[in-house]
Computed example of a mutant assay.
Amino acid sequence: MATDPSEYDKAMPIVAAHLAKIERAVSRTRSSHAGQLYTTVREALVQALRDENAERVVPQVVDEFARRISEEPDALPF
Rank of each mutant, 00 (worst) to 15 (best):
36 Q>F: 05
44 A>F: 06
25 A>W: 04
49 L>E: 00
12 M>W: 12
56 R>E: 13
19 L>Q: 14
41 V>H: 00
9 D>E: 15
20 A>W: 08
62 V>S: 04
62 V>G: 01
18 H>S: 11
56 R>I: 06
30 R>L: 15
53 N>V: 02
38 Y>V: 06
29 T>P: 02
37 L>G: 04
34 A>T: 01
49 L>K: 00
41 V>L: 04
13 P>G: 07
34 A>Y: 02
12 M>K: 03
18 H>I: 05
53 N>M: 05
52 E>L: 10
9 D>K: 11
39 T>K: 09
60 Q>F: 04
54 A>P: 07
16 A>N: 08
32 S>M: 11
58 V>Y: 04
42 R>A: 05
28 R>F: 15
26 V>H: 00
45 L>R: 00
33 H>W: 01
39 T>Q: 13
13 P>V: 07
27 S>Y: 08
12 M>N: 07
12 M>P: 06
44 A>I: 05
18 H>L: 06
62 V>Y: 04
16 A>M: 07
34 A>Q: 05
56 R>F: 06
58 V>E: 06
61 V>M: 10
11 A>L: 12
16 A>R: 08
29 T>D: 00
34 A>D: 07
58 V>Q: 05
46 V>M: 07
52 E>A: 10
41 V>S: 02
8 Y>P: 11
56 R>D: 15
56 R>L: 09
58 V>M: 13
34 A>I: 10
51 D>C: 07
50 R>H: 13
25 A>D: 01
24 R>N: 10
20 A>R: 02
54 A>D: 07
13 P>E: 03
55 E>H: 11
19 L>V: 15
19 L>R: 15
19 L>T: 08
60 Q>M: 12
46 V>D: 04
31 S>P: 06
54 A>E: 05
30 R>F: 14
35 G>C: 11
62 V>Q: 10
49 L>T: 03
19 L>G: 05
46 V>I: 14
40 T>Y: 10
56 R>W: 14
39 T>N: 13
61 V>H: 07
27 S>G: 11
20 A>P: 04
18 H>P: 10
38 Y>T: 01
18 H>N: 11
52 E>G: 09
39 T>M: 08
27 S>F: 13
24 R>H: 07
42 R>P: 04
37 L>F: 06
44 A>Y: 02
52 E>Y: 12
50 R>M: 12
55 E>D: 13
54 A>C: 09
27 S>W: 13
45 L>G: 00
20 A>Y: 08
51 D>K: 03
15 V>D: 05
23 E>Y: 13
50 R>F: 15
29 T>F: 06
44 A>G: 03
23 E>D: 10
23 E>T: 10
34 A>S: 11
52 E>W: 12
11 A>D: 09
53 N>E: 14
14 I>W: 10
57 V>H: 03
29 T>A: 03
17 A>T: 02
27 S>M: 10
43 E>K: 14
36 Q>Y: 01
7 E>I: 06
19 L>M: 12
32 S>N: 08
27 S>V: 10
57 V>W: 05
22 I>W: 03
20 A>G: 11
48 A>H: 04
11 A>C: 12
52 E>C: 08
34 A>N: 02
34 A>C: 12
8 Y>T: 14
60 Q>I: 15
62 V>W: 04
50 R>A: 12
26 V>W: 02
62 V>A: 08
7 E>A: 14
45 L>T: 00
23 E>S: 11
56 R>P: 08
51 D>W: 12
